[in-house]
Design a protein around this nucleic acid. Sequence first.
DNA 1: TCCAAAACAAGAGCACTGCTCTCTGGATGG
DNA 2: CCATCCAGAGAGCAGTGCTCTTGTTTTGGA
Lengths: 232, 232
Amino acid sequence: MSTVRGARERARIEVTAAIKDEARRMLAAEGAAKLSLRAVARELGMVSSALYRYFPSRDELLTALIVDAYDSVGAAAEQADARAHAGGAAPRERWTAVCEAVRAWALDHPHEYALIYGSPVPGYSAPADTIAPASRVGNTLIGIVRAAHAGRGLALPPLPAALRPEAVRMTADFAEGLPPEVTAALVAAWAQLVGLISFELFGQFNRVVEDRAAFFAHAADQLAHAVGLPAV
Amino acid sequence: MSTVRGARERARIEVTAAIKDEARRMLAAEGAAKLSLRAVARELGMVSSALYRYFPSRDELLTALIVDAYDSVGAAAEQADARAHAGGAAPRERWTAVCEAVRAWALDHPHEYALIYGSPVPGYSAPADTIAPASRVGNTLIGIVRAAHAGRGLALPPLPAALRPEAVRMTADFAEGLPPEVTAALVAAWAQLVGLISFELFGQFNRVVEDRAAFFAHAADQLAHAVGLPAV
DNA sequence: TCCAAAACAAGAGCACTGCTCTCTGGATGG
DNA sequence: CCATCCAGAGAGCAGTGCTCTTGTTTTGGA
């Protein structure tokens, strides 16, 4: 597998990593719009054309950063859940812990957040290798709700007939075992959570919400309620 | 006021409008990233430097388009509400009508939507002249909830102590007369609504939600419930 | 009516971008 | 040992936002 073939391979993965690191630095500093291949190359002491041996285009570099960002926020969410779980937290507390972790990650990495949850940059690109990392946070939330359901069951109002087949399909696809109402509520809650964070991060709460932490905490708790997690 | 001073003034506002129109066309066709001053000038048969007499920079042009986009979606929301209101709809129906109108506008104007609710393009810019147009949709939703409150009153669970002062302040600032719990729920619901639309538009629902219309309809209805609007 | 001032358009140019091509020197592996 | 491959260099193309200078036209006051 990862047998170190030779100096050449080693150098290649090293340079690739250096490029990504530098690019991530620039992304964090200035945002995706200001990230330029030439600047990255300049900073690394190479010429811009040499960089194309490692990434076929600027968009490919961005895609690599996108995957990393998904993994980063996914890891943050999973760790927060694991910590809460280990501390014997109830499902509702685990839920809010994950929500807070995602928000904290977003505030810490605003440009990376914008890259993955803001407007898609190049027309739009969702290569196959992004879909697994992209679902880590969602899967974490599913895990929490599933645990709660296994614990004492979740009761939500019944779905409208028009949505029922879709909710059943979604459940079969990625939330096996959950009541369809819960699956639908969960997916909506996940989108809504990102909406809350985006509004805060993208300036939509300017002159509207001042105490963002308190506001978010309450909204996240209400979201937990909306997916049927019992209050502690 | 708008007394036509002379041929010069007239020409100026005409050219300004032509520039914005062409820019909007390009925005709709290719997205904000591909909108270039030079291309606009080329299409209009002028040289790029001449364009700087009308807009001091590319960002200023984009800001003008942002304001227009806010006005466009705001008008769509207001019209949908007016239609529902005229048809004798209950508050909850007015609410979902506005939600559907915003979603429909977004699907019709994806790049303009991305411009206003996606990641802010230049670092970030929220000039003073954008804040009024930006609040039209929000104000429409406030109006609906206010009417419902005046009608029979809205009852929501009490706020956590940590959020109460903030909710009271928000109420005094832009939602006079509403119970603070409702104000807080309303602001959250607005952000969450945009989160739902963004997920759909930005591809986050790919391989997750298929029947987006049914899904959204249910989510919007649940949002109405979350702000305390009684079911019809 | 005439003329200075202001507004406008055009062109050249700067510094930057992504990306392609060709060429060279050195490591790789048969 | 030597042919092969490949990383890097350099030049160059087409495009970008923006500035500065140079003519030209319109305007409003004396």
